[in-house]
């Protein structure tokens, strides 16, 4: 091993000592590409037109990108889900207890059947990956101004949002992720043009950010 005095020999030996790795094949590249896309907490843009809309107060409406006054107005006047698929309850970080309903499915009978079957499956809401989705929305909060510009918001910025709000939005995203999986498994496009549904909630005692209180006052005149 005297030739190891030369770095090139040592370098070759060190490089050759690397543990085995998997073959870099077309199949593996495809699997990696798919994993990169599927790892996203949601494939839905905050501005996606057909994303599920969670309504019950104006919370989140502006920062989700539905920032027109018309939508905001609708948000405070939309009644409880009319055609309820199921109701469920949850507790917000502030301790407020929420009663929620999901339903009013659009897109056709097959969409309605899959959504109803999925959300009524025991443990569906308990099994959602809330932590991941809440963290995602917390990291991707933007306030959309009237001129279309955006301001990233967080606990230390203007337009401060609450942990309760993050929870609501994370729940919305996680619910859609669960539904997306079920729809895809049933050969239905989760982003189909006509597909939509509504979640409404009622959370007495919920902590609302100050700007939302102001927005509600303005919207309600």
């Amino acid at each position: 091993m005297s030739d190891l005095n030369e770095d090139s020999a040592l370098d070759r030996e060190l490089a050759a000592s690397a543990p085995a790795t998997t073959a870099n094949t077309v199949e593996r590249s495809a699997a990696l590409a798919e994993m990169a896309r599927e790892s996203a907490p949601t494939n839905v843009s905050p501005l996606r037109r057909h994303r599920p809309l969670i309504i019950g107060s104006a919370v989140g409406v502006a920062i989700l990108g539905f920032g027109s006054a018309a939508v905001a107005t609708g948000a405070v006047s939309v009644p409880w889900v009319q055609d309820v698929a199921t109701e469920f309850t949850y507790t917000l970080p502030s301790g407020a207890e929420c009663r929620a309903a999901i339903g009013d499915v659009t897109g056709g009978e097959r969409y309605e059947d899959v959504l109803r079957d999925t959300v009524t499956e025991p443990g569906f809401f308990d099994g959602l990956d809330l932590e991941t989705h809440i963290a995602f929305v917390a990291d991707n909060n933007y306030f959309v101004h009237e001129d279309g510009t955006e301001t990233k918001i967080g606990p230390d910025t203007p337009y401060y949002y609450s942990a309760d709000e993050d929870y609501h939005r994370g729940l919305s995203e996680a619910t859609f992720a669960g539904l997306r999986e079920a729809l895809t498994a049933n050969s239905l496009d989760p982003y189909g043009n006509d597909f939509g549904y509504l979640i409404t909630y009622d959370c007495p005692g919920e902590v609302q950010p100050e700007y939302i209180v102001d927005l509600l006052e303005r919207v309600n005149g």
Binding site: A18, A20, T22, E27, R28, A31, M35
Partner: peptide, 17 residues
């Protein structure tokens, strides 16, 4: 998500060394 990659590793085997 990792199962497919794991399956490929077992199916095709590691590369040298």
């Amino acid at each position: 998500l990792a199962d497919r990659l794991r399956w490929l590793a077992y199916d095709q085997g590691p590369v040298a060394p």
